[in-house]
Simulated scan of single mutants.
Amino acid sequence: MTPVAISIPAIGVHHTLLSLGQNPDGTLEVPPMSDVAAPGWDRDSPVPGRVGPAVVLGHIDGTSGAKGVFYALGALRPGDTVSISRSDGTVAVFRIDGVNTYPKDAFPTLTVYGNTTNPQLRLITCGGRFDHATQHYLDNTVAYATLTGTHPS
């Protein structure tokens, strides 16, 4: 069973999911900049709906100025829902618990990726100030969510 699509009605996200892994240097692969509308699931994280923090990444924008799939991630509020459709024909539904922004140089790896005792979801994108010299955002925005249930699609 793998996640195949994501829906976040509060911010207008409805998209299929890519499968992402690790780069040769051990860092987390991100979706290609050639399609900033495409989010991806970290296949080394739990399947959404299983115990642990499932991780989905998406871009905030692209080099052409196009808005990315998670452009409005920071606008999510506690209680908003995220649905993940899975390859077995079921949908895992999560409730947003909160959204935080962290400096990339002080990213709380254990808080975001550490084991949990229940099924959780982490939605991650870039955020904060854009450094024109490096062409990168200085922060990451992370939305935290908890599974509320599953149902047939």
Rank of each mutant, 00 (worst) to 15 (best):
P3Q: 09
S7Y: 06
I8F: 02
I8G: 00
G12Q: 09
V13T: 07
L17G: 00
L20R: 02
G21K: 12
G26F: 08
T27L: 09
E29V: 09
M33N: 12
P39I: 01
D42Q: 15
P46G: 12
P46R: 01
V47K: 11
V47C: 11
G49F: 02
G49C: 08
G49D: 02
R50W: 09
P53Y: 00
G58K: 03
H59T: 05
I60C: 02
I60Q: 03
K67C: 04
G68S: 07
V69P: 00
A72V: 03
A72G: 03
G74W: 04
A75P: 07
A75H: 12
R77N: 13
P78E: 07
P78W: 10
P78M: 10
D80Q: 05
T81Q: 10
T81E: 12
I84N: 01
S85A: 06
S87A: 15
S87G: 14
S87V: 06
D88H: 11
G89E: 07
A92C: 06
V93I: 11
F94I: 02
D97H: 14
K104H: 08
K104Q: 11
A106N: 12
F107S: 09
P108F: 06
T109I: 06
V112L: 04
V112E: 00
Y113G: 02
Q120V: 08
I124M: 10
T125D: 04
T125K: 04
C126I: 08
C126D: 02
G128K: 08
Q135P: 12
Y137N: 13
L138V: 11
D139P: 00
N140C: 14
V142T: 01
A145W: 00
A145K: 01
H151A: 05
H151F: 12
P152G: 15
S153Y: 12
